[in-house]
């Protein structure tokens, strides 16, 4: 039960290592010294200025991280198998490096009984981007709702996601990279059914392509 959680968190930490340079790089990007040159002569010079837009596509693994009651009594995460996810996102820069946007995703996880859990979140995102050409980095937070289907039953609820990614600016228009996000999927019921409340968590690790409009 603990193994998938530990593995998921380790992968997430590994993929988020580039973010450790966020603070220093952010300061450097925000206040360039007069006369600085681009890191590479043919690299795109986009510093994620206001008005720029991006769309992103991703596909990857969906790793069950935890499953518990709202009192954090964890049980049953091992009943979920490694799954797959995909997403489609749009971002619009409202300030230098700061974007808002939307994200639609879907994820499948098989179960030990041969069933599957499908979760489709839809949310608003806020991201901060910075660059160390030819690499780009981002941290992102998302809030929205999700729809889950399981054995012909469904539930909708609030959804939170946090994480980041590192990308290589392959062409002036395209960046390719890796992302890792932690999904918080609370299942909340009302009335006489609050004993069904659960908190599920997944780590999405995916390959992403970002198109700079």
């Amino acid at each position: 039960m603990k193994t998938p959680s530990a593995a998921a968190l380790a992968i997430a930490a590994l993929l988020l290592l580039p973010i450790s340079g966020f603070a220093a790089d952010a300061q450097a990007s925000a206040a360039p010294a007069p006369g600085d040159l681009p890191a590479a002569a043919d690299a795109p010079a986009s510093p994620f200025l206001p008005g720029e837009q991006m769309i992103g596509l991703s596909a990857g693994l969906q790793i069950p991280a935890f499953l518990s009651t709202l009192a954090f009594e964890e049980a049953g995460v091992s009943h979920l198998n490694l799954g797959a996810s995909f997403s489609f996102s749009y971002q619009y820069f409202v300030a230098r490096g700061l974007s808002i946007g939307g994200n639609f995703a879907g994820a499948f996880n098989g179960t030990i009984g041969g069933s599957s859990v499908f979760t489709a979140p839809l949310g608003f995102t806020t991201s901060y981007w910075w660059t160390k050409l030819p690499f780009e980095f981002t941290v992102l937070g998302e809030a929205g709702g999700y729809l889950t289907r399981y054995l012909s039953n469904g539930i909708i609820g609030p959804f939170l996601k946090a994480g980041g990614g590192a990308y290589w600016r392959a062409t002036p228009s395209w960046s390719l990279g890796l992302q890792a996000y932690l999904w918080f999927v609370p299942e909340l019921h009302y009335g006489d059914y609050t004993d069904l409340d659960r908190l599920a968590g997944f780590v999405e690790t995916s390959i992403a392509a970002v198109y700079h409009l």
């Binding site: 499953l67 049953g76 030990i112 859990v117 469904g154 019921h189």
Partner: peptide, 21 residues
């Protein structure tokens, strides 16, 4: 969304209650 939601059914409780087959 309305037809997909059943407040009386616990999705993840169902997952927790599964057995390996």
């Amino acid at each position: 969304l309305a037809f997909s939601c059943d407040n009386s059914y616990g999705v993840y409780k169902g997952v927790q209650g599964e057995k390996s087959q």
